[in-house]
């Protein structure tokens, strides 16, 4: 009893995960990130939310910020637990967001004919829907995406 309540309340020390961009970068980063979160004993839905949001962010970096023709580059994820949830900062050195702004993340209409159904464009919708306080800044030659994941609030 004492053990479990202690592990629920103790804040996780801030940590960072580093990977090189590439086909399996998202899987590698997610494995490392979720491993670091293990002391929080997140339930399957909380862990699933975090995994999905970060997967979308990482895919976007791998596929767009670091264009397929480029040599890729580093991706860093920093995480800090606070009473308001997990504050996450994802950094890469790829191309800036178009217009220097976050995509809106609207869903395409689904009342379309079969051939016109969307096969993409769900990523930013999911990020905006599942994460809080998402902000983007370009700092020198880096993209900084910040967000709050509302898990383990106290």
């Amino acid at each position: 009893m004492v053990e479990s309540s202690k592990s629920q309340n103790a804040a996780l020390p801030p940590f960072e995960v580093h990977v090189e961009s590439g086909k399996c970068a998202a899987r590698e980063a997610l494995d490392k990130f979720l491993e670091e979160l293990r002391p929080l004993n997140l339930d399957i839905e909380e862990a699933g939310t975090i995994e999905l949001v970060l997967a979308e962010v990482l895919n976007n970096i791998v596929e767009h910020a670091y264009a397929p023709a480029s040599d890729g580059g580093p991706i860093a994820i920093r995480c800090e637990q606070t009473p308001d949830g997990l504050f996450v900062l994802i950094k890469d050195r790829g191309t800036a967001m178009p217009d220097g702004k976050l995509p809106l993340g609207d869903l395409a209409p689904l009342d379309a004919e079969l051939d016109d159904l969307p096969e993409g464009g769900f990523g930013w919708f999911l990020i905006q829907h599942l994460a809080r306080d998402v902000t983007y800044t370009r700092v020198d030659n880096e993209n900084h995406l910040k967000m709050r994941l509302a898990v383990r609030l106290s």
């Binding site: 999905l52 895919n59 096969e119 464009g121 769900f122």
Partner: peptide, 18 residues
């Protein structure tokens, strides 16, 4: 686990079937 790329691939599979 499925992400938006996986979802898109399932939609594409359905579209392929006509």
């Amino acid at each position: 686990f499925i992400d938006s790329s996986g979802l898109g691939a399932i939609v594409a599979a359905m579209k392929n079937m006509g």
